[in-house]
Design a protein around this nucleic acid. Structure first.
Length: 533
RNA sequence: GCGGGUGUAGCUCAGUGGUAGAGCGCUACCUUGCCAAGGUAGAUGUCGAGGGUUCGAGUCCCUUCACCCGCUCCA
C-alpha cells in the first residue's frame, strides 16, 4: 500500500537498475552474496558524479566559496587513509566494545533483545561470591561477555556511569557470566512473553570485519576492516597540522570504503556490508563549535537539495537529547524518504558535534599529545602579537553515505508517466546524470550520420570527463529518445534535414519532451550552461 | 535469528510429472523526416545451487544460497 501511495515501486526501481546497468547483485553468477552489491556502467558513473560533487563542494571549493560563521572562507584539505589501521585505533574509538552488542533470543516467543537493553533481573541469579558485600544496596544482574574479571570491571564501570546519570533504577542492564549461564538460565524470564528459561545465552555479534595481517595469520595478527573512515582523519590530525600551513578552524576530508557486518542487510543497497563514505571532520575552537555545527548542518542539507533531492522526500532531523551519544552536544541526520522506508525516512548523512571526544581518546590511547596551539588567540602582547592558546579542538562531523546517496538519487529520479510512450524516466539532475547528452541523426542517411558523428566527437572532447556523450543512428527516433529517458540522459540533440541547410539542431528536454531549435555551434555552450560547468 | 513470499531468456512473467514458452528488450536488414518505442528476420536458458523420489522432475521431497515483506536489530 505504501508503495502505491508513493507512486514508486521498489521492485520496479530494482528491475530498472539491473536492466540499465546501474546496480548488479555482487557475485551474481555464484548465487550472490548477502549484503554486497556491485555497480554497472551507469551506476558507477552516477556514483562517481556524486563523489566528485562532494569532493568539489567540500574540499576543492568548500561550500561553494561562501564564508563560515567566522567570516572567513571555509578551509578543507583531503587525506586518504587506509582501510586497515592499527587495532588499537578501534579500541580508542570505542568500536571494539561498542560494535559487539551481545544479543539474546527468546526461544519461546522468538523475540530478540540486546542484552544490555534487558530490564534488571533479581539478585539471586548471581553467584554467591559475586553477591557478597553487595547485600545492603540494590544490586542488579547483568549480562556480560568475557572472563569473570572482565565482566566485574565492565559492571563496575557501568554502575558508575548509571549512577552518574541517576538512571540506575530504571535502566540497569542484566549481566550473567557466559560460562555459567546454563545453570542460571532457569531464573530468567523473557521480558516479552514471561516464559522462564527460554532465553538463549548472550551471543556476540561481531560488527567489525576481522582479518589477519601477515602471512602467518596467527591470533596476534588480528586486524579489522574500518567501520568508518573518520578515525583515519583523527589519527592523522597531528601530521596534517604539522606538515601543512592550515590553521584551525579547518576540515579534513576522507572518502573511502568501510565495512560493517550488519545484522540484517536489507533494502537493496541501503544497508550493505561494504559501503563508501565521504566524511569531513571539521576542527574548531570549542567556543565556536555550536556556530560551526549549525553552519555544516544547514549547508549539508542545502547541498543534497542542490544535486536533485529537492522535494519533500528530504528532511533534516535533529536527534532528541536521549538519542545523542554521551559526548555529543548536537547531532542531526539528513534523511530521505525511500520507497521502502515510506512514510518514514532513512539516513543519508549524519552531522554530529563530537566535541573533543575523538582526539582526547586517541591522545589517551596513543600517549601522543593531540592538542593544538592557536597563535591567534590569547591575550594581546605589547609587540602586537597574541600569546596563544593551547586546546583540543572540537569537531563537527558531516559524514555522508555515498551508496545511500546514489540510491536516493535513483529513487528520486525514478518517475513513471503513463502518458508517455515510454513511461519510465530517470530524472537525474544534469550534474549527476551518467549520460550528459545524446546526439542522433533523425534518419540514418542523407549526410545526417556524418554531422551527428562530428558533433558527438566535439562534445566528447569537451564534456567526456564529466560523463558519457551517447550517439545512436539506429532505429526510430522515438525508441532512441525512450532509451535515453530510461537512462536519465537530460538532453538529446537531433540532426535533421534542416541542419544540413541552416546549421541548426533540435534539443529535446528529457523531463518535458519539449523541443527547441538552436544553432549547431551553440550546442556546446548550451550544454555547458545546463550542466553547470 | 524467527515467520511469510519469491527465484524459469537481459527485464516482466506463464508453464500442476512427459519436446523450454510469451511480451518487451537485444542483433541484423529494411523502413523511418521528431517520440504510434514502424516492419521483417534472428540469437539468447546449467528453469538459483546440491541431493533424493521416479522410466521420466521447471513441476514432488530434502538441504542450501540469494532477494523481497513483516518482526528483531541498526554501534
Amino acid at each position: 500500500m505504501r508503495r502505491i501511495s508513493m507512486g514508486k515501486s521498489m521492485d520496479a526501481i530494482m528491475a530498472l537498475c539491473k536492466r540499465r546497468g546501474f546496480v548488479y547483485q555482487a557475485s551474481e553468477i555464484y548465487g550472490g552474496i548477502n549484503g554486497f552489491w556491485d555497480y554497472g556502467p551507469l551506476g558507477t558513473l552516477l556514483k562517481r558524479n556524486l563523489r566528485e560533487a562532494w569532493w568539489q563542494d567540500m574540499i576543492m571549493n568548500p561550500c561553494w566559496g561562501r564564508q563560515g560563521p567566522d567570516g572567513e572562507p571555509v578551509r578543507c584539505v583531503p587525506v586518504e587513509t587506509r582501510i586497515i589501521q592499527h587495532p588499537r585505533v578501534w579500541e580508542a574509538s570505542g568500536h571494539v566494545g561498542g560494535f559487539n552488542d551481545p544479543m539474546v533470543d527468546c526461544k519461546a516467543c522468538k523475540s530478540r533483545f540486546r542484552a544490555d537493553h534487558l530490564i534488571a533481573l533479581p539478585l539471586h541469579a548471581l553467584t554467591s561470591v559475586e553477591t557478597a558485600g553487595e547485600q545492603s544496596r540494590e544490586v542488579f544482574v547483568f549480562y556480560g561477555l568475557g572472563t569473570p574479571a572482565e565482566v566485574r570491571q565492565q559492571r563496575a564501570k557501568e554502575i558508575a556511569r548509571l549512577e552518574a546519570q541517576r538512571t540506575l533504577q530504571s535502566l540497569v542492564p542484566p549481566l550473567v557470566y557466559l560460562h555459567n549461564y546454563e545453570t542460571l538460565k532457569a531464573d530468567f524470564e523473557c521480558p516479552a512473553c514471561r516464559q522462564r528459561g527460554s532465553l538463549t545465552a548472550p551471543r556476540q555479534f561481531n560488527l567489525m570485519f576481522k582479518t589477519y595481517v601477515g602471512a602467518t595469520a596467527s591470533e596476534d595478527d588480528i586486524a579489522y576492516l574500518r567501520p568508518e573512515t573518520a578515525q583515519g582523519i583523527f589519527v592523522q590530525f597531528k601530521n596534517v597540522v604539522d606538515t601543512t600551513r592550515i590553521k584551525v578552524p579547518f576540515g579534513i576530508g576522507n572518502v573511502g570504503t568501510s565495512f560493517r557486518n550488519e545484522v540484517t542487510p536489507r533494502n537493496f543497497t541501503f544497508r550493505s556490508r561494504e559501503f563508501e563514505q565521504a566524511e569531513l571532520e571539521f576542527f574548531c575552537h570549542p567556543d565556536d563549535s555550536q556556530g560551526w555545527y549549525r553552519f555544516w548542518r544547514d549547508f549539508r542539507m542545502e547541498w543534497w537539495r542542490s544535486i536533485g533531492l529537492a522535494g519533500d522526500n528530504l528532511q533534516l532531523r535533529e536527534h532528541d537529547q536521549d538519542e545523542l551519544s554521551h559526548y555529543s552536544t548536537g547531532t542531526c541526520d539528513v534523511e530521505y524518504r525511500f520507497p521502502f522506508t515510506a512514510p518514514d525516512f532513512g539516513e543519508l548523512e549524519g552531522v554530529a558535534h563530537r566535541g573533543c571526544f575523538d582526539l582526547t581518546q586517541h591522545q589517551e590511547h596513543s600517549r601522543v599529545k593531540l592538542d593544538y596551539f592557536d597563535q591567534e588567540r590569547g591575550e594581546l602582547l605589547p609587540n602586537g602579537s597574541r600569546k596563544g592558546e593551547r586546546y583540543i579542538p572540537h569537531v563537527i562531523e558531516p559524514a555522508a553515505g555515498l551508496d545511500r546517496g546514489a540510491l536516493a538519487l535513483i529513487c528520486e529520479a525514478y518517475t513513471v508517466d503513463e502518458s508517455r510512450p515510454s513511461p519510465e524516466i530517470m530524472k537525474f539532475h544534469p550534474r549527476m546524470a551518467p549520460i550528459k547528452a545524446a546526439v542522433f541523426p533523425l534518419v540514418n542517411k542523407d549526410g545526417m550520420p556524418e554531422v551527428a558523428q562530428k558533433l558527438t566527437d566535439e562534445l566528447r572532447a569537451r564534456f567526456g570527463r564529466h560523463g558519457l556523450i551517447e550517439s545512436d543512428p539506429k532505429q526510430s527516433i522515438g525508441k532512441r529518445y525512450a532509451r535515453m529517458d530510461e537512462a536519465g540522459c537530460p538532453y538529446c540533440f537531433t540532426i535533421d534535414g534542416d541542419t544540413l541547410t541552416d546549421q541548426t539542431v533540435t534539443v529535446r528536454d528529457r523531463d518535458s519532451g519539449a523541443q527547441e531549435r538552436i544553432a549547431i555551434d551553440k550546442v556546446s555552450g548550451y550544454l555547458s550552461e545546463r550542466l553547470g560547468l
